[in-house]
C-alpha cells in the first residue's frame, strides 16, 4: 500500500517535471531556459559528488577534472568533421579522431565511461590510504588535467579550446540525465551496496568487521560518481558549444561542493533543491560582478564578487545548520528511498 503510494507520488513528480519543461521551453526566453539547463546539470553534479563525499564519506575534490574529461570527450566525438578541420588549424587532430562524428547519447555514455575509468585509475592507488590522500590526489588530478589538455594540441586543440560543438543539450537532455541520476542513486542507496557505502562512511572498522571490503566499495562509489560527473561535463559542452581548459578550475568544484553542503551530506532531496537554488542564485547574483550604475555613484564591477557573496551565504548556512536552525524535523527528511 505505502509502496504503491510512493510510486504514485514519483509518477506525479515526473509528470509535473515534464509539463514544467514543456511550458518552460515554450514560454520562457532563451536565457531562462539556459538557467534551467544549468540547474539540471548541477543536479547531476551535486548528486554525483554527494555519492562520493556525502554517502560514502570519502573526500574528493576532483569534480572539475572529471567534468573536463567528459566535456572534451563529447566535444571531440560529436563535432562535425569539417568543424574539426576549422578548429585544429594549429595542428591537425590525431587521425583516428578526425573522421568520427557520433550522436549525443553514445558520446555522453563514452564521456561517463572514460571519466569513470580515469577515476578508478586515480582512485585505486590512493583509496587504500586514508581520505586525505584522495583529496590531494583528486585536487592534483583536476589541476593536471587542465595542464595536459592545454598541451595536447592535436587531441584537445590546446589553449584554443573547442568551438562549434553541436548544441545538443536542451532541457530534455539536461533534466533527463538529472532524472536518471536521481533514479540511479536513489535505487543504489536503497539496495544493499548503497547501505554498505553508508556503513563505510559511518565506521570503517565496524564495516570491515561486518565483511565489507572497504577498497572495493570505495572504488565502486567513486567510479559511479566520476561517471555522472563526466556525463554532466558532456552536457555542459553540448550546452555551451565552446570549451577550453580554463573553464574547469577548482572554483567549479567548489560550486558543486557548495550545493552538496547546502543540500546536506548524504541527502538526495536536499541536493536537488540546493542545486536549483544555487544555480538560479548564481545567475541572479551575476549583476554583482558587473559595474553598477546607482544614478549618483558608479560602482566598478568586481569579478568574483558573487563568489564572495555566495561564500558568505555558505558560512552562514553551515553555522545555522550546526545550531540546528535549518535542520528539518527528524524522520521527515526526504533522504533516499527507505524501506
Amino acid at each position: 500500500m505505502r509502496e504503491k503510494n510512493k510510486r504514485h507520488v514519483t509518477l506525479l513528480i515526473l509528470a509535473l517535471t515534464i509539463l514544467g519543461l514543456f511550458l518552460a521551453n515554450r514560454f520562457l526566453d532563451p536565457y531562462k531556459v539556459r538557467v534551467i539547463n544549468l540547474s539540471g546539470i548541477y543536479v547531476t553534479l551535486g548528486l554525483s559528488m554527494n555519492l562520493i563525499n556525502g554517502m560514502t564519506g570519502m573526500f574528493s575534490l576532483g569534480h572539475a577534472g572529471f567534468m573536463a574529461v567528459g566535456a572534451y570527450t563529447v566535444g571531440i566525438l560529436t563535432m562535425p568533421i569539417t568543424m574539426k578541420e576549422m578548429n585544429f588549424f594549429m595542428q591537425p587532430i590525431v587521425p583516428f579522431l578526425a573522421n568520427v562524428e557520433w550522436g549525443f547519447l553514445p558520446a555522453l555514455i563514452a564521456a561517463g565511461l572514460i571519466s569513470a575509468l580515469l577515476g578508478v585509475l586515480i582512485g585505486a592507488p590512493v583509496l587504500r590510504l586514508t581520505d586525505d590522500y584522495l583529496a590531494i590526489a583528486t585536487l592534483g588530478f583536476a589541476e593536471i588535467i587542465r595542464v595536459v589538455f592545454t598541451n595536447t594540441q592535436s587531441l584537445t586543440n590546446g589553449a584554443l579550446g573547442l568551438k562549434g560543438i553541436p548544441n545538443y543539450t536542451n532541457t530534455w537532455w539536461s533534466w533527463g540525465v538529472a532524472l536518471v541520476t536521481i533514479w540511479f542513486i536513489s535505487y543504489l542507496m536503497r539496495g544493499t551496496y548503497g547501505k554498505a557505502f553508508l556503513a563505510v562512511r559511518e565506521d570503517e572498522v565496524a564495516a570491515r568487521a561486518m565483511g565489507i571490503n572497504l577498497f572495493k566499495h570505495k572504488v565502486m562509489s567513486f567510479a559511479f560518481g566520476c561517471f555522472f560527473a563526466g556525463v554532466a561535463g558532456g552536457l555542459m559542452a553540448g550546452l555551451l558549444g565552446t570549451i577550453d581548459p580554463n573553464m574547469f578550475r577548482i572554483t567549479l568544484t567548489f560550486n558543486i561542493l557548495l550545493i552538496v553542503v547546502l543540500g546536506g551530506l548524504g541527502k538526495i532531496g536536499g541536493t536537488i533543491i540546493a542545486a536549483v537554488i544555487v544555480t538560479a542564485g548564481m545567475e541572479t547574483l551575476r549583476f554583482l560582478d558587473e559595474s553598477m550604475d546607482l544614478g549618483f555613484v558608479q560602482i566598478k564591477g568586481i569579478p568574483g564578487m558573487r563568489m564572495v557573496v555566495f561564500s558568505i551565504i555558505l558560512i552562514v548556512a553551515v553555522i545555522l545548520r550546526e545550531k540546528g536552525l535549518l535542520r528539518r524535523p527528524k524522520g521527515r527528511e526526504f533522504t533516499y528511498v527507505k524501506n
Binding site: 536503497r190 539496495g191 544493499t192 547501505k195 554498505a196 564495516a207
Partner: peptide, 26 residues
Amino acid sequence: FGELTVLENVFIGNHLRVKSDVFSTV
C-alpha cells in the same frame, strides 16, 4: 553505524552474503 536506523544496522550485516551484483540492485 550511528546515523543509520536500527534496521539498517542489522541489514548491513547481511551484505557480505549478498550474491547479486550492484547493477541488479539498482
